[in-house]
Nucleic acid binder design. Structure first.
Length: 483
DNA sequence: TGGGGTTAT
DNA sequence: ATAACCC
C-alpha cells in the first residue's frame, strides 16, 4: 500500500497529551530517562519513491524549520535558580511581567501583564528581575550556534526564535534513503490537521525528513543547554512559524502543503499574521479588511494605492501563505545597545549619570565582541501620553582616535565618548528649557572587524614557501623583509 | 508595556 | 533620522 497515514489509531497523539501535562524542567531533572522530543513513528518508504528522480522544478521547494524556545527568560532563570522550578515564576522588567513559566500561566498570568494585575491574579507568583539581558543574550547565541551545526543558514528572530533552512540537509538524507534499500521513513511529532501523509509524494517525504531533523535539533538543545522549545517544519518561513505554535509547550508540528489553507484560515485576525504589524493592521481595518480571507480577496490595485506596491504585494502574498523571503544568516549582531526607562529624568546631570551607566555596559560588551563600532547613537523618549511612536535619536561617527582606544584597557575611553554623547544630547534636548525624559538608550553600530590585512602582524614579515603546505596542513614560511 | 533587535525609506 | 517590523 502506498498510502501511509498518521492515523488517530496510532499512539502518537496520546503520548503527546501526557507530555503536555508534564513540566519539561522536572522531566529534564528527573534523570533524563525520557527524551525531550516525541517518539518517532515509522512507516516504510514507498517503493516508488526509491527510484524517484528529484524533479527539476523542485529546486525551488525549500524545507524550513522554525525553532521557538518555551518562555525563554523564565527557562533561563529556572536554570540559574533551580529552587524556583515548580513554582509560578514571572520575569519582571520595571512594572511589567514580560514572560512567565507555565505554572504561572495556568494561574492566569499572561505575557506583558502589569505586576499589579499579575500579583492580583496570582498572589504566590515569584518574580525575578530580568532587566539585565546578559545571560539571556549569551544563552540565546548558544542556541543559534548549536543550530548552525545543522545548517549554516540560521536566522535569529529576537532572542528566542530561529529559522533554519534545511533544504540541503534534507536532500542529502533523501539521496541516502534512495540508495539504501532498507530505509524507513517516519514522522516525528505532530502533523498539522492530522493530515494523512503520502509516502509516494516526494514533498511529503522531504517534510517528514525535515520533522526528524527538527526533532534532532530540539533534542540537541535540550541535551546540551537544558532548554525546551517548539519547532515547526514547512516550505517557507511564514508557514514554519505559524505551524510551530500549534502545539505548545515543547512539541513540534510539520505542515503538509495540502493543509496550508487551513493553517492560515486558523488565524482569526490579520493582526496575527507575522509581517503585518500595528500600523498596517490599523490601515487595513480602515479599509474594512479584518480577516485573512478579506485580505486574500481585496482588490490588489486599491491595496497598492493605499499601502504602496511593496507592502501591498508582500502582505497579500502572505495572506495566501506565500513567502519567498530567504532565511538570511544573521551572523554576529549588527548593533549593540543598552537602554533604561524610568519615570522621570529632567536634568542634564541626571541624564549624564544614566548615559555613563549605559555606556560602561556597552563598552564591556563591545570589548568582548572584538569588532569596533564606527557609529554611536543616543536615543531618547520624551514624556508623552503617546508612549509608542515617540523616540528621537542623533548619531555620529566615532572619531578614529577613540576607536583605537577601544578594547585597550589602558586609556580612558569613557570621557571622550561621554563628551560625544552629551553633545548629541544637547542637540536633541534644549537643556535651558524644562524637559521630561522617560527613556535613554545608547547604541553602537557600523561594526567593523579589526584590520584583516597582515600588515603589522608577524605574517607580514613571512612569505609562504614554494611547497606552500606541509603534510600537517600548516603553512611553511621563509623570512622576508616585508612587502 | 520592556529591553532589546532588524530592514527599508 | 525615522518608520516599520519582530521578539
Amino acid at each position: 500500500m502506498d498510502l501511509v497515514g498518521v492515523g488517530p489509531e496510532e499512539e502518537e497523539e496520546e503520548d503527546e497529551e501526557e507530555e503536555d501535562k508534564m513540566d519539561p524542567q522536572l522531566r529534564g531533572a528527573a534523570g533524563g530517562s525520557r527524551s525531550a522530543v516525541e517518539p518517532v513513528e515509522a512507516g516504510r518508504l514507498a517503493p516508488s519513491v526509491h527510484g524517484q528522480v528529484v524533479p527539476a522544478g523542485s529546486a525551488s521547494y525549500r524545507v524550513i524549520v522554525h525553532v521557538d524556545l518555551d518562555c525563554f527568560y523564565a527557562q533561563v532563570e529556572m536554570i540559574s535558580h533551580p529552587e524556583l522550578k515548580g513554582k509560578p515564576l514571572g520575569v519582571q522588567q520595571k512594572y511589567l511581567v514580560v514572560t512567565c513559566n507555565y505554572e504561572a500561566r495556568k494561574l492566569g498570568v499572561k505575557k506583558l501583564m502589569s505586576v499589579r494585575d499579575a500579583k492580583e491574579k496570582c498572589p504566590q507568583l515569584v518574580l525575578v528581575n530580568g532587566e539585565d539581558l546578559t545571560r539571556y543574550r549569551e544563552i540565546s547565541y548558544k542556541v543559534t550556534e548549536l543550530l548552525e551545526e545543522f545548517s549554516s543558514t540560521v536566522e535569529r528572530l529576537g532572542f528566542d526564535e530561529n529559522f533554519v533552512d534545511i533544504t540541503q540537509m534534507v536532500e542529502k538524507r533523501l539521496h541516502q534513503l534512495q540508495s539504501d534499500d532498507s530505509s524507513v521513513v517516519a514522522v516525528s511529532g505532530h502533523v498539522y490537521n492530522n493530515q494523512s501523509v503520502n509516502l509516494n509524494d516526494i514533498l511529503h517525504v522531504r517534510l517528514l525528513i525535515g520533522s526528524q531533523i527538527a526533532a534532532e535539533m530540539r533534542e540537541a538543545i535540550f541535551n546540551q543547554l537544558g532548554l525546551t522549545g517548539c519547532a515547526g517544519v514547512a516550505s517557507n518561513k511564514l508557514l514554519s512559524k505559524l505551524v510551530s505554535g500549534t502545539f505548545k509547550p515543547n512539541q513540534q508540528t510539520v505542515l503538509m502543503p495540502e493543509s496550508c489553507q487551513d493553517l492560515i484560515d486558523s488565524l482569526d485576525h490579520i493582526k496575527q499574521m507575522p509581517g503585518i504589524g500595528y500600523k498596517t493592521t490599523k490601515r487595513l481595518e480602515s479599509l474594512g479588511i479584518n480577516s485573512v480571507h478579506d485580505l486574500q480577496t481585496f482588490s490588489p490595485e486599491i491595496l497598492e494605492k493605499e499601502l504602496g506596491i511593496s507592502v501591498a504585494q508582500r502582505i497579500q502574498k502572505l495572506s495566501f501563505g506565500e513567502d519567498n523571503s530567504p532565511v538570511t544568516p544573521s551572523g554576529p549582531p549588527q548593533s549593540f545597545s543598552e537602554e533604561d526607562s524610568f519615570k522621570k529624568c529632567s536634568s542634564e546631570v541626571d541624564a549624564k549619570k544614566k548615559i555613563e551607566e549605559l555606556l560602561a555596559s556597552l563598552l564591556n560588551r563591545v570589548c568582548k565582541d572584538g569588532r569596533k563600532p564606527h557609529t554611536i547613537r543616543l536615543i531618547i523618549r520624551r514624556f508623552s501620553s503617546d508612549r509608542h511612536f515617540n523616540r528621537e535619536s542623533r548619531q555620529c561617527p566615532i572619531p578614529s582616535h577613540v576607536i583605537q582606544k577601544l578594547g585597550t584597557g589602558n586609556y580612558d575611553v569613557m570621557t571622550p565618548m561621554v563628551d560625544i554623547l552629551m553633545k548629541l544630547f544637547r542637540n536633541m534636548v534644549n537643556v535651558k528649557m524644562p524637559f521630561h525624559l522617560t527613556l535613554l538608550s545608547v547604541c553602537f553600530s557600523n561594526l567593523k572587524s579589526l584590520p584583516t590585512s597582515k600588515k603589522g602582524s608577524i605574517e607580514f614579515y613571512l612569505t609562504p614557501s614554494s611547497s606552500s603546505t606541509s603534510h600537517s596542513g600548516k603553512r611553511t614560511y621563509t623570512i622576508t623583509s616585508g612587502r
